[in-house]
C-alpha cells in the first residue's frame, strides 16, 4: 500500500497544502497510473472470469461470481475498515494527532461502505441460485450487514457539522467504539448460526481444490479491486482536503467582509 503516500505527505498536514486545488503533478501522475492499472486489471479479471476459466464441476458457471466477490469483500472488510481503525487510533494518539488521519479514516469508511454494499449484493446474487434465497441469516452475511450499519452510523455522525478537530475527535472515538465491537459481533453471530462455506481464498495455502487458472483469476481479482480501492481512497481524501480548505477560505472571506464593513463604518 505504498500508493497512499500522497495523503501522508507532511505538506498536506492541517489543511495547508502548498499545491493548487488540483494537487501536485506527482499526485496527478499517481492517480492517473492507479486509475489505468485499476481499469485494466479489473477488465482482465472480468475477461478471465467470464470467458477464459472453465466452469466448476460442482458450481458450474456460478463459480465465476467467486472471482469478484472475495476481492470486494477483502477490500471492504479488512482493508478499508482496518485502515479506518488504524487511522482513527493514530488521530487519537496525541503524538500523531493530525487531520491527515481524520481525513484518511473518513475516506476509508466511505469507500469501505460502498464496497461492503457491493459485497452484500454480489453475495446475494450468488446466494439466490446456490441457496435458493436472496438473503440467508448466515453468520458472515449477518455480521457484514451489522458492520455496514455500524459504519453508516459513523458517516451519519460525520455529517453533523462541527469544527474540524471536534468532528475529528468525535468520529475517531466513534470508530474506536465500533471497531472494538466488530470481533464480538463476529463471534456472537457465528454462534448464532452458520451455513456459509468456509473461507476458500485466504487460507494460508492457496487451496488445492481450485484449478490453476481459477486461482490466478481469483488473485488478479483481489489485486484489481485493491488498486481500485486505492484510487478511490486517494480521490476521496482529496475531496476531504478540498472541503476543509473551502471551509477555511470561506471563513476567511467572511471575516474579511466583516472587517471591511467595520472599516467603512
Amino acid at each position: 500500500m505504498t500508493t497512499i503516500a500522497p495523503p501522508a505527505d507532511p505538506r498536506l498536514a492541517e489543511g495547508a497544502p502548498a499545491t493548487g486545488p488540483d494537487g501536485s503533478a506527482r499526485l496527478r501522475a499517481t492517480l492517473w497510473t492507479l486509475g489505468v492499472l485499476g481499469a485494466v486489471s479489473t477488465g482482465a479479471t472480468v475477461w478471465l472470469g467470464i470467458w477464459v476459466t472453465p466452469p466448476d464441476k460442482v458450481q458450474g458457471n456460478l463459480v465465476r461470481l467467486v472471482y469478484l466477490h472475495p476481492g470486494v469483500a477483502w477490500v471492504a472488510l479488512y482493508l478499508a475498515f482496518g485502515l479506518a481503525a488504524l487511522a482513527s487510533l493514530l488521530y487519537l494518539w496525541p503524538r500523531t494527532r493530525s487531520l491527515v488521519w481524520d481525513r484518511l479514516a473518513a475516506a476509508a469508511v466511505e469507500v469501505g461502505v460502498v464496497f461492503t454494499a457491493c459485497t452484500l449484493i454480489s453475495g446475494s446474487i450468488w446466494g439466490r441460485p446456490t441457496w435458493g434465497v436472496w438473503w440467508a441469516w448466515d453468520a458472515r452475511l449477518t455480521s457484514t450487514a451489522v458492520l455496514l450499519v455500524l459504519f453508516l452510523g459513523y458517516l451519519a455522525l460525520r455529517r453533523v457539522p462541527a469544527e474540524p478537530h471536534v468532528r475529528a475527535r468525535r468520529s475517531a472515538f466513534a470508530a474506536l467504539f465500533a471497531a472494538v465491537d466488530v470481533p464480538i459481533v463476529h463471534f456472537s453471530v457465528l454462534w448464532w448460526r452458520t451455513l456459509h462455506q468456509g473461507a476458500t481464498v485466504l487460507n494460508p495455502t492457496l487451496s488445492p481444490e481450485i484449478h490453476g487458472s481459477m486461482a490466478w483469476t481469483l488473485l488478479l481479482g483481489i489485486v484489481a479491486l485493491t488498486v481500485d480501492f486505492a484510487w478511490m481512497l486517494v480521490v476521496r481524501y482529496r475531496i476531504g482536503l478540498l472541503e476543509d480548505r473551502l471551509g477555511a477560505e470561506e471563513l476567511d472571506r467572511a471575516i474579511d467582509a466583516r472587517r471591511a464593513e467595520g472599516g467603512a463604518a
Binding site: 455500524l150 452510523g153 451519519a156 455522525l157
Partner: peptide, 12 residues
C-alpha cells in the same frame, strides 16, 4: 443519532 449508533453495537 444515538439509537442509530448504539443499537447495532449492542446487538451481541
Amino acid at each position: 443519532l444515538l439509537p442509530f449508533l448504539l443499537l447495532p453495537v449492542v446487538a451481541p
